[in-house]
Design a protein around this nucleic acid. Structure first.
Lengths: 191, 191, 191, 191
DNA sequence: AAATAATCGAGACGGTACGTCTGGTCTTACC
DNA sequence: GGTAAGACCAGACGTACCGTCTCGATTATTT
């Protein structure tokens, strides 16, 4: 038999409360208890639909952040890449950066978060980057003998390294200096 | 001032217990309570000498791991760099990798850990890398107009990215492919 | 009036499941949730027809136990009384005793149970006792100046006291010793 | 080694809060959570020292009630007994009665409560009664061939029966009528 | 030597949050 | 309209650790 349907209003209230609390206090202070109280919802309702704090946070983050991070693509592949890197660095310097940072942090101890964050947030963005790179190869800008994933890692990794590990700045000047080095290694000689 | 000296035996017992527990169960399951019980030590003794779980874990990790990660330097700068990258990737693929990963993860929510880990673990290693890079510049292998920190990030970041974010493999083939790209951008033309 | 009739099969299934679960695990472990699951019935169906766990348990108990506790009456009033007391003590020593005990226990916090248990279980049995006592008075066995309810309490109360409070044994020897005392007080002098 | 001593102030606060809450809302509404909040105490502190809600309630009740129930004994055994019965009935008709009732109720499902209540509350009172009865035997008031425990049950049980089971009144008139019957059976003939 | 002072182990304390459980209500789809 | 299924809000359960705080016992220095 059927039974009552999932209450969409409760689902929304939970996700919004989660995002709100996370934005105000950070992922580490987030508690299921707090979300339930803030959303006016029983704890069991949260545990029924989400595996834990991590899964909830990732979904809340994506739901709230998805509209904000549409990276535009146009012009030459080289220019698109540098522009994308600058936009990403800017995005991570902003308020959402802290959340991304804390969630990647939490993902180190929790495979659920890692998987969810990877497949729902990072992979789509990476696919975009692959398309741009391939466009560059097709246009004769980039060497054809380089693996796209290696190239993409070479280009974007330092943003994550500075963001997650060293905490060093990610200003446009750094992005330019870094891109100059790697693109020199990626571009067809003499171009 | 008078008073009893700090008990070195207790300090060692605490650090060893911390490392042991961390190795067995991971950083996230580590608890001060557990360390105290395992080391046969009062909790207050831990809180008196360490700021918290993070600081304790970092020190325990470094004490135990330091002997294992002495990167040798010799030969050409280019070769030394690639060899170092391979050793680092190998180190992170091993059992210590999980601990480093979890500690960098925890550092995202805890500035104490971040600072301790940075200054005691990463910065010394980075200083070594800077020395090698400068040697390469002096030897005419590398371009003189490139900032050492930008170059180092360009070289080593993908290891951390794959390690922390994408989870992709870090085999020697990848290291070689990546190094080839970046070194092409770093080396003096025609060399 | 339109609408489906009450489903007698569901009612039976609920009562049987209640008795079953109560017999296996005791009244305190009984839960509406469990009854619903065991009977293959919605929780709402139970709440629609019974006031709560207590009311349900009492009805289930009476339905199942009623056939087992028909106290026979015959012979002299004095003998009937002692025989009844022995049978009651035996009944309470058996498996049903635990249920009665737990239900009287629950009745201390729940007037619903108290009322239901009283009117449906105890009062009918008491009425029987009154009849026997009155027969004894009519036959000249018992003093006519004693209130039947006081006499009945004097006779049967110790069974309940030992059963509910002190936990002391209720063997035939005790019943005899007790009855001897009280009957001495109840019988017409010189009989 | 020793460790910190138990905090007597916390103990008192817990017992008083327990009694307070129990008096206001009854045993069934009592919750450890509520006691902790009311006493300004961590839940763990309660669980550290008491086995559960039952053990806590019994101790709180005894602590608070002990001063109120010192039954005086003097005069003839017969008179003492009737006076004690009247005092007990009065005590149970009062506010403490509800608590005793609920605790005996809870004891039906929880051996911990039963044991604690028996040994700490009932048995001491019973021992007093035994002493009085033996005094009566020694004084030639009571028959020497009657077991003290049987006699005591015969005398006091109806108070408990009416209190716990039938809910009938326990006024002095009833006590007198009941005592008259049983004492007739207990006293030496012709006295 | 005695007095002083900081450290140690143990562990109780007030708290927070956990994840589970049950209670009683409400909704939906089927009969 | 009654029913089975089951989601919902509510809130207590007992547990695990947190970081702080006594305790007494144990060293070292300083008088």
């Amino acid at each position: 038999m059927a039974g009552r349907k999932r209450d969409e209003a409760a689902r929304q209230a939970i996700l919004q409360s989660t995002f709100e609390l996370m934005r105000e206090e950070g992922f580490s202070r987030l508690s299921i208890e707090g979300v339930a109280a803030c959303a006016g919802v029983g704890k069991a309702t949260i545990y029924r639909w989400w595996a834990g704090k991590g899964a909830l946070a990732v979904e809340a983050f994506l739901t709230a952040a998805e509209p904000l991070i549409a990276f535009p693509t146009s012009g030459s592949a080289r220019d698109d890449i540098v522009r994308q890197m600058r936009l990403l660095a800017e995005f991570y310097r902003g308020p959402a950066g802290r959340l991304v940072r804390e969630m990647i942090g939490a993902a180190q101890c929790d495979a659920t978060i890692r998987t969810a964050f990877m497949s729902d947030f990072l992979e789509p963005r990476r696919e975009l980057a692959r398309a741009v790179f391939r466009r560059g190869v097709a246009a004769g800008e980039f060497r054809a003998d380089v693996d796209a994933d290696v190239a993409i890692d070479a280009l974007w990794s330092p943003i994550y390294y500075r963001f997650l590990v060293s905490g060093a700045g990610m200003e446009d000047a750094f992005i330019s200096a870094h891109a100059e080095i790697v693109l020199r290694g990626l571009m067809v000689d003499g171009v």
